[in-house]
Design a protein around this nucleic acid. Structure first.
Lengths: 191, 191
DNA sequence: GTCTATAGGTTGATAGAC
DNA sequence: GTCTATCAACCTATAGAC
């Protein structure tokens, strides 16, 4: 690993706390709906202290998404080790879905609640969605019809889709993941 | 049709214009990221004029989602006319997906960009997502495992999921709809 | 590292003339 | 129906003491 994850820099426990609370509030109320003051008060500190740890509001969100990058890099490395074959798409998608951590789910809910901001980050090239293009590019032939590429993307996005479908219901996260897994299988059915 | 659509009340052309621009801006920048001033300036009027047509910012978003309700009611009525059978879920979901209008897509993008607000509306009982519970309840047995209910919901949400998967790509709406249709078929495969 | 105080700007909303 | 003028409340961010 070449660079050190910013959220784990040693001797900065407060920083991690800030990120934890910010993720929670940004998810519940959205980025624009959450003020720096809200975050500070939830932590029992003042805004100014928060500015000591982060250059600004946007720096917080940036640290939040950067944290999710490593997983993607690991997946890409794993793909490159695999023998090519017709089932590689399904195997990779299932590997991704099955490895869904609670933290990743939190990240998804965060992304859901802040799509305009995620779009802005995407336009600057620094978001997970863009990085995912690489994954799909290695699994679907470049000359495949675009609907096939979309379907492959959807096969990776089933957890996100299932979370969305489960909104307002009392489904547990385990049930959501199970439904997502079934959907990934359905979407990678060879035709 | 029992009640008159609020957006078509006669003699209120400006009102429709406001809704059109608000939908566009709320989708691009989000509800909190769009000020009343932004909407007014895009229309070439002042904030005060806008307040003549709508009681406030939230009244605008409420009018926006109310517009989408009729379609759901029509689908429910259609379901009640159908003979029950094992293929009713797929037929209904495909009917819904195939009837996707450009306006509905705009509505979905809007919902994507404003999930905290949609959640707030849902908590008050006035959102499309809640109304959809009725649809699924008529198509999936009440004692079915919850993952099956989730999968049924996902079968209806494929356009939304495909739109999400297509973010950042140059896929056309036709291609998105085609991918969504394929996904709906895959997700309603009898097992 | 954390605080108080405050600058400098935007927000949603209202009053009242025309 | 549309305007100008204005408000209190809120925001991000900074300066400087401790």
């Amino acid at each position: 690993m070449p660079t050190e994850p910013p959220s784990r820099r040693p001797g900065s426990e407060t920083r991690a706390e800030i990120l934890r609370v910010a993720l929670e509030l940004f998810t519940a109320r959205g980025y624009e709906g959450t003020s720096i003051r809200d975050i500070a008060e939830a932590l029992g500190i003042t805004k100014s202290s928060l500015y000591y740890h982060f250059a600004g509001k946007e720096a917080i969100i940036r640290a939040l998404v950067d944290d999710r990058r490593d997983e993607l890099d690991a997946l890409l490395a794993w793909i490159d080790e695999q023998p090519p074959g017709p089932d590689l798409l399904r195997r990779t998608a299932l590997r991704w879905v099955d490895a869904t951590s609670p933290q990743r789910i939190r990240g998804m809910r965060f992304a859901h609640a802040n799509r305009p901001m995620m779009q802005k980050l995407a336009d600057e090239g620094g978001d997970i969605r863009t990085w995912f293009d690489e994954v799909v590019a290695r699994l679907v032939p470049a000359d495949a019809p675009r609907t096939e590429t979309l379907r492959a993307r959807m096969a990776f996005d089933t957890v996100s889709a299932a979370l969305f479908a489960a909104l307002g219901t009392d489904a547990t996260e385990a049930e959501v993941l199970q439904a997502a897994r079934a959907a990934t299988i359905a979407l990678t059915e060879p035709r």
